[in-house]
Design a protein around this nucleic acid. Structure first.
Lengths: 354, 354
DNA sequence: TTGAAAGCGGTACCAT
DNA sequence: ATGGTACCGCTTTCAA
């Protein structure tokens, strides 16, 4: 039995003591019923305008705030949406989150955020917790298996970002064409051996990029070294850069901008100049111009992705039929800035040290 | 009246159709009462172990998930906490958010995130919305006035980050000593005229920094130009850098790292070398080593701040007495990296162009 | 146009 | 150790 502060000894409401105003309080003051007050907010058109005005006035006066949870309990709608990301500290996500957040509150929705720390297990836990208090959840770059995603999707509306699963609403940032462009650029500039710093296995984006890089290298007859990142972070990039150097490449394509920056830092520390000695290309444009020298990259589109995702999610929440197979694809492009250029002179062939 | 999918024509539950299991469903199957089932979860020690085991088994079998909102309605506790930041895209916040998020879910709490877009009005709206579904809210670098904060604090547990208001739990990152160190370093290195790029007026952090810079310059007999940023962003930094150059300074102290990077970009674009021509110092260490050349800055501590803040908030939620005036102060330090050094030779006096 | 009342899914007091 | 029951605050059908 909930104890409410603000009750007198007699157990009746003490008008002096400030408590959270409820519909009943308004009803009492307005000499009307709870139903009427409720309608004054939800369907004022059904009521006598005077009644509505009076109720609204009183509500305002005593500082009434509707109780979201009670409403949710009754309607089955929470007015909240959830967003799960692998790592909020990865610069790819903040703009995405921001876009979703701002659109959400334009729609009167509140946003629950979960950062899973790149762990599938945590992501599952967070999902369970959020599912109970949201109308739907956006899974961005999920590290969950298809099977797990399906299980969740069966219980709760879901929208995916950067994960391609038929039957679920999803928005995909397609970087394959951009990767091809980038590799093409490198090929034309005399590079013969490049590295791809590969991100998380579960990442759809990573699979796409690796695949495109492989294909592009095959076509341009370039050698490709795939170097797995220990983790998709600045530190991961540093370590991988070292391996890339050991492999003797003249250009590095990194899983994302954060790892690219890590690679850049390590290369510089090793006395290797970018782009003179080694060209470097990131992905996502997550640090737009924030880097110096400006990082070449593949365009980000995370904000657009966020907007579309929320839209799809809302649709999914409305017609729960799920009959439609919604899929939005955004095409990224290669952005040439200052970290990529011609291969070092006298390096037309491979400078592999083996 | 909530329409539940999964009811037969007769209006009774159809065991075949999957609906959200409730306490009653379990009670029915276990031939016991709702109270008992409820206790099996909350106070199993009061029950016969066999009963508990049986209930848990059934719950597991039918995939029961307690309904948070119903629980909250009854107990008055939501198990959620809110976090409001001015701009999630500002790199100072993600680490902060991450720290809070991960500690929150260690405590079994869910995190509501709001990004106000540097607008006090939006921050108020978000606060209202979150207040109804959280047990407490952390206000990070709030742009709200003291009066507004007080009003909110009167209705809902609050903890402040980087805002010093007596009576409210707060954690402060004190950068004054670090600013003094930084200015001292510049003075010793021959600088005679520096600029401070000033952030939002409402920002406590900015006030602290500006004050410290002013005082330090007074002591070291340096000239200080205070240049207000149009906004605390990369772009704001770019514009301000131009003004700093026009003022003829040899060193720039920026409100934060993001603006510092903006300044750096513009300086480079103007052909001004950092640190040869102009020294640059940021604040917050929000881009730890992510920049190249590595930005000199004041240490960040946002993660520590986040952890402390959540702790204080939980305390505030427990003993709602508010009798204690809790305040945690974290001291930042000057971190010398590659963007700050001696003033340009032959520039012992001012190179002001006026 | 309005009111009465039955829930929504739990919790916790009071009995048994 | 358990069951009955009165809430929590709001929505919505049904009747008046």
């Amino acid at each position: 039995m909930p104890k409410r502060e603000g009750t007198t000894i007699a157990g009746k409401r003490d008008p002096k003591t400030r408590v959270k105003p409820t519909l009943d309080e308004i009803a009492e003051r307005a000499n009307t019923s709870r139903s009427t007050v409720s309608r004054a907010f939800s369907r004022p058109d059904l009521l006598n305008p005077k009644t509505v005005a009076q109720i609204l006035a009183i509500a305002e006066e005593i500082g009434y705030r509707p109780n979201n949870m009670a409403r949710a309990l009754s309607t089955g709608r929470t007015g909240n949406i959830g967003l799960l990301v692998p790592d909020i500290a990865n610069p790819f996500f903040p703009p995405l989150i921001k876009a979703i957040q701002s659109q959400a509150d334009a729609l009167g929705l509140c946003l629950f955020l979960g950062s899973s720390g790149e762990s599938g297990a945590r992501e599952n836990t967070l999902f369970e917790r959020l599912a109970g208090q949201t109308d739907g959840i956006i899974l961005a770059s999920t590290r969950l298996s298809e099977a797990q995603v399906k299980i969740h999707a069966a219980r709760h509306p879901i929208t995916l970002i950067n994960r391609d699963m038929a039957g679920l609403p999803r928005v995909l940032i397609d970087t394959q064409a951009a990767v091809m462009e980038a590799v093409g650029f490198l090929a034309e500039n005399g590079h013969r051996h490049i590295a791809y710093l590969s991100g998380p296995k579960e990442s759809w984006s990573n699979q796409q990029r690796m695949e495109a890089a492989t294909e592009a290298c095959r076509r341009t007859d370039m050698r490709l070294s795939i170097i797995p990142l220990s983790e998709p972070s600045f530190e991961g990039g540093e370590a991988a850069a070292e391996e890339a150097v050991a492999a003797g490449v003249t250009a590095i394509l990194a899983f994302d901008d954060l790892t690219a920056q890590g690679a850049h830092a390590r290369l510089s520390a090793l006395g290797i100049d970018v782009p003179r000695d080694i060209s470097l290309i990131g992905c996502d444009d997550a640090l737009p111009a924030m880097t110096y020298p400006a990082l070449s990259t593949l365009s980000g589109l995370s904000q657009e992705a966020g907007r579309h995702a929320l839209k799809l999610l809302c649709d999914a929440i409305e017609h729960r039929d799920g009959s439609q197979d919604m899929k939005v694809v955004l095409g990224a492009r290669f952005i040439l800035r200052d970290t990529a250029g011609p291969a070092p002179a006298g390096d037309a062939k491979d400078r592999d040290r083996s």
